[in-house]
């Protein structure tokens, strides 16, 4: 008897969400099977890789990176253009660190100006990340969403605390996409989607950020959360969990001791830059292999490595 491959059929499918506009728009999601399981079903769009830039000079970044960006880092629009031309990521993630109330506390208007200048400078889709201060993010996103109207950006993120303001501004008043952020809490991940839906946000305009952790830092729990979210969709066809997942990997991996410890303190650990890249690459690889549809990276070397991986597995 001929061998018949048994196939695990999925009942649900991840929505395809478009970011950006025009020729360089990208699609994330669309899979109806676990990542890279092309023997079981449709794997959807290729995983998308984004690069992080800031709205202020990256004081805390490793020296070689500051060197790379030395001519452009004072101007986010130039920085974004440089990244687009030099490294060609699928998207650029502009992180509004300057808006942090515990830092420079820039006004929503200033942030809106910066975001607009960046959106105008590049053709690559733009993801805009806030400060993690829910109240401030809401105020900032309301202004920014208006300023980048038409660019179909993704806003990171709406949380349980500010989803009404962020959801209404980003996706209802202007046609952007909303990130729904739950911190490694599978039930909250679902709940937030339901709440955004009840508010009037189309499920097709939501991208989940279900949590973020560097490998070795509670990472297994994050992995199991993503796994269970995907299985709830594929096995139970849970319509409230059809959104693709984005993971801003670099936001976490560059803050752990492996990436932070100065070389003079732990000479046996070797180059700080190399350690940072290793943390970023190992975390991003793992998170893609469990089902994240997009990741944000900081180092060009990480981007290059991940690109090679994703292309090879295609």
């Amino acid at each position: 008897m001929a061998f018949k491959m048994s196939v695990q059929k999925a009942k649900g499918k991840v929505e395809e969400v478009q970011l950006g506009s025009g020729d360089n728009a990208i699609t994330i999601g669309g899979e109806a099977t676990l990542p890279f399981y092309d023997f079981d079903g449709e794997t959807g769009s290729k995983a998308k890789l984004g690069m992080e830039i800031l709205d202020i000079y990256p004081e805390d970044w490793v020296k070689p990176l500051k060197e790379t960006y030395k001519d452009v880092a004072e101007d986010p629009a130039k920085w974004a253009k440089f990244v687009e031309e030099e490294f060609n990521p699928d998207f650029i993630c502009l992180r509004l660190e300057g808006a942090d109330p515990n830092g420079l506390d820039k006004s929503p208007e200033e942030c809106a100006e910066v975001c607009k200048s960046v959106a105008e400078a590049i053709n690559t889709p733009l993801v805009i990340a806030g400060t993690n201060n829910h109240e401030k993010d809401k105020e900032v996103f309301e202004k920014v969403a208006q300023a980048v109207d038409g660019y179909n950006c993704l806003f990171l993120s709406a949380t349980e605390e500010n989803y009404k303001g962020v959801g209404a501004a980003a996706s209802m008043a202007y046609s952007h996409k909303v990130g729904a952020e739950s911190s490694v809490d599978i039930n909250l991940a679902k709940q937030l989607n339901v709440l955004l839906g009840q508010l009037g946000v189309d499920y097709g305009d939501i991208v989940m950020n279900v949590g973020n952790a560097a490998a070795g830092y509670g990472f297994e729990y994050l992995v199991s959360t993503i796994d269970r979210i995907r299985l709830a969709l594929f096995n139970q066809n849970d319509k409230t969990l059809t959104m693709p997942i984005i993971t801003p990997v670099s936001f976490e991996t560059w803050t752990v001791k492996e990436s932070m410890a100065p070389e003079e303190e732990v000479p046996e650990w070797g180059s700080r830059e190399q350690r940072g890249i290793s943390m970023e690459v190992s975390t991003a690889t793992s998170i893609l292999s469990v089902g994240s549809d997009a990741v944000v990276l900081r180092h060009p070397k990480s981007l290059e490595t991940l690109k090679e991986l994703v292309d090879a597995l295609e």
């Binding site: 039930n187 909250l188 679902k190 709940q191 339901v194 269970r228 139970q236 849970d238 409230t240």
Partner: peptide, 12 residues
């Protein structure tokens, strides 16, 4: 465990 819990599960 036939459906995933969320606070609003009764409304779905």
């Amino acid at each position: 465990n036939n459906i995933l819990y969320a606070d609003s599960y009764l409304e779905l």
